[in-house]
Structure formats: structure tokens, C-alpha cells
Amino acid sequence: MSFKNILFCFILLVAASCASKKTFVKPGKKKVVKVVEKEPVKLPSVNETKHVEKLKDTEVNLNKFTLEYIEKFAPIAVKKMHTHKIPASITLAQGVLESGSGRSELALKSNNHFGIKCHTNWTGESVTHDDDEKGECFRKYEYPETSYEDHSAFLTQRKRYEFLFSFGTKDYKKWARGLKDAGYATDPKYPEKLIKIIEDYKLHEFDDVKEKDVKYAKVDKKIDENPEEKIDKNVLYEVQKGDTLYSISKRFMISVEDLKDRNGLKDNTISIGQVLKIK
């Protein structure tokens, strides 16, 4: 063997020995992981039953299915307000409108209450449904509560909705109009429909519920692992188009807060090509 060949082999060996042992997930080589949903916990009351009974006594021609929907989902809407700073009235009104008060095909068969489509980063179950186009892909959930969490993630982790949070949690009219301006819906009357639902059913009263007045149970922030679906988390991940911290956390079965802590992130903003430490 010539000296040049020996030298070339030596260089290759050195390069191989110096290479990082960390796994690096490159674009096009995503590990497809089934979305594991946490079983919902019972949330404390926010006087939703009293709210509905008062509406029945003082208002007429209110939809009974909408009243049932409010009584069932008001606590989770308030919880999401306290966690993500989205007005409970907006979340509830969108749920009522998008799911037909929980009676739409998507809500009944897929627990999808907000019409959230698959997008490129979804690794969970899905169904096809005719919407803007025929046979579009929509997310399917085991629990409706996961749909509510996805709704919160959709608004908090996309830059085009960032301005909405400057309105606070008590200006539902600005939120309703802002959602339309940000492109959440194509219906030009979307804001008016939300506002009407909020005012007809007095959903803005839930925006006044203070976190200190609700006794939430303390839960572990980490997402539980399914022992049969563990994956190697000793990786660096390169952010791709369509990724959010929430979608990445679901893929690798860790919490958004853990991702932020491990990467020194102060908010949920990430950019294409950014390398995140998974473990």
C-alpha cells in the first residue's frame, strides 16, 4: 500500500473517532411516533352549572345542545385561559361554532372540536373530511381535551397570532376580530358569529374567573411515556418547516417546558434550521 493510501486511511479513522456520538435527526429522517394522549383529569368547577341554570331562567330560545356544551367544557376553557392566556370565552365560542356544539361529524367521530387539520407535522391518527377542499386530512383525538390543548398550541406557537395576546384575556371582541385578521377563518362573518355566541350565552363571565380562586390539582408537567413506544431521546433535532415546540414535544414524548429549559428558550419561538437538544 502506498504512503498516500495509508495516510488517507489514517485520516478517515481519526475523523470517525472524533465524530460526536449523539444522534442527529436530519430532515427527511423523522422518527414517526404515535401521539400518546394523557388521560384527562377532572377539573374543578368554575360555576358552570350555575351559569347554565341562570341562562335557562333568564334567557329564551337558547340552544339546549350549546348549553350542555358550555356546562361540559367551560372548566377546560378556563384552565386553558389560565395556562395559555387565551380568553375562555373565545375558546368556548370557537368550540361551539366549529363543532356545532359538539355535534359535528368531526367532533363526534374524532373528538376534533376546532377543525384542526393534520398539517405536515402531525403523527397521530387522522380522518378525511370535506372542508375547503374535498377529502382533507383532519386530526383525530382519543379525548376532546387533547383537541382543546391543540387549539391552545395552534394559537400560542404561531407568529401570526402573537399580536392577539397583547389584548389580554378580557377583550373578546378584539380577539374575535383579530382571529379573522390573522387568517384563522375564511368566513368574513366569523368575528360577528363568535361575538354573538359569547354575548348570547354570556361566556365573557368565564373570563373573570381568577386562577387563585380555582383549586387545580398539582400534576407532573412531564408527559408520561408509553413503555412499549419508547424512543431514543439522546438526539439533537433540526427544526423543519411546519414544526412547533408542541409538535416536537409530542414526537419525542417530552413536555414543551422541558424543551424550553434544555435549550434556554424564553418563549415558544423557533426557526427553521435551529438545532434543539432533546436530551
Rank of each mutant, 00 (worst) to 15 (best):
K4C: 01
L7Q: 10
L7P: 04
F8K: 09
C9K: 11
I11F: 13
C18F: 13
A19K: 14
S20A: 14
S20L: 12
S20G: 12
K21L: 12
T23P: 03
F24K: 13
V25Y: 10
K31M: 12
E39F: 03
V41D: 05
K42T: 14
V52Q: 08
E53T: 13
K54F: 14
V60K: 14
K64Q: 11
F65R: 11
E68K: 05
A74V: 07
T83H: 02
I90T: 03
L92E: 04
Q94N: 06
E98H: 04
G100N: 07
G102Q: 10
E105C: 05
K109P: 04
S110H: 08
N111Q: 13
C118V: 10
T123E: 15
E125Y: 12
H129Q: 09
D131N: 10
K140H: 06
E142Q: 13
Y143Q: 13
Y148N: 09
Q157W: 09
R158S: 01
R160P: 01
F165L: 03
S166F: 01
F167H: 03
G168W: 01
T169C: 00
K180H: 09
G183L: 01
P191S: 09
E192L: 02
K202M: 05
D207A: 06
E211S: 15
D213S: 14
V219G: 10
D224S: 15
I231A: 03
N234W: 10
Y237G: 15
Q240C: 11
Y246N: 08
Y246K: 05
S247N: 12
F252H: 05
M253W: 08
I270P: 01
S271L: 07
G273I: 11
